[in-house]
């Protein structure tokens, strides 16, 4: 049997793949958080709830309307994004004049409310959501067995991350976003409707979380707690990447997912804390994060 660092190659690559899949979710979620924090300066504690909402909307669309995974992949982010936009427009936007802490407290309360409502309606236990038939099964790569759906998650999340990065770095809308992050009053004086930009940004961030939620539904069970389980890790990812850094959030998401996966191979006992250990070290050595700018 081929060994790598004393570990069977198959086990090594298997955990690497799991790390890459977890990293895909970390990247997608931390990307949305970074986009929202960059422009709105709001630490969106409701992000986990919006991720959970994405998975639930996909499941409910299937249960009540027979809408399959592929359509849910489009509609669930749109529905949750719209919900996010309405929340920002009518509630969150009222807090911008106050200390940033109020935005954090509001989104924290929102997350608890959403999660509590879904726990009341659907219970705490998870509900299954089937892998779409087109992506069922797996393929033998020779050195390991790759479930097709998991490969799909890695590829599609990478495409979504790159697409969002391109939107922000290479388009006019992205230039407005970046400029408004630096000096919103001046961008508004130039004739750009910044309040609408803020609403769209929050909607985009919530939509990205929901997109990750739909992708996650067939892998993890659809549960009201799925958001709160992952969000703390995602916050650690954003801190390591650098608050507000888009590329930092993406790269750190994948890096930490892989670090977590590999720790499971070499020292499984530490796998659940490795991300937080890395966060602590980064905060000590580089408080602005790996890709953040010094404030």
């Amino acid at each position: 049997m081929t060994m790598i660092f004393g570990i069977p190659l198959q086990a090594f690559l298997g955990q690497l793949l799991i790390g890459l899949i977890n990293g895909s979710f970390y990247a997608l979620l931390s990307l949305g958080l970074a986009v929202i924090f960059g422009l709105l300066r709001v630490i969106n504690f409701a992000h986990g709830a919006q991720y959970m909402l994405g998975a639930f909307v996909a499941m409910l669309l299937l249960q009540y309307f027979g809408i399959n995974y592929w359509f849910a992949l489009v509609f669930a982010p749109l529905i949750v994004g719209l919900f996010g936009a309405v929340t920002e427009r009518f509630l969150l936007s009222r807090l911008y004049k106050l200390d940033h802490l109020y935005g954090l407290l509001f989104t924290f309360g929102l997350a608890l409310t959403i999660e509590g409502t879904f726990r009341y309606l659907y219970g705490s236990s998870g509900q299954p959501y089937s892998v779409p038939p087109q992506l069922a099964g797996g393929t033998n790569l020779g050195f390991m067995f790759l479930p097709i759906y998991r490969g799909w998650v890695v590829v599609v999340s990478l495409v979504a991350c790159i697409g969002t990065w391109l939107l922000i770095e290479k388009t006019k809308l992205g230039a407005y976003l970046r400029a408004a992050t630096e000096n919103p009053i001046l961008v508004q004086a130039f004739g750009v409707n910044v309040p609408v930009l803020l609403t769209l940004t929050y909607g985009l961030g919530a939509g990205l979380a929901a997109f990750a939620g739909v992708l996650a539904a067939p892998i993890y069970q659809v549960s009201p707690l799925m958001g709160s389980n992952i969000i703390i890790v995602v916050f650690a990812v954003v801190v390591v990447g650098g608050m507000g850094s888009i590329m930092g959030a993406i790269l750190t998401g994948y890096m930490l997912g892989i670090a977590e996966g590999l720790t499971k191979v070499f020292y499984p006992e530490a796998s659940s804390i490795v991300i937080f250990v890395i966060m602590a070290i980064v905060l000590l050595l580089r408080p602005a994060g790996l890709f953040g700018r010094d404030v």
């Binding site: 230039a175 970046r178 400029a179 992050t181 630096e182 000096n183 009053i185 001046l186 508004q188 004086a189 130039f190 004739g191 750009v192 409707n193 910044v194 309040p195």
Partner: peptide, 22 residues
Amino acid sequence: LHRTAHAGLGFVPEERGIFSTL
């Protein structure tokens, strides 16, 4: 504020307001 420029007023602030990320 976001309609002022559309009315025809263009502003160059004292601190110039050049965006570092652009």
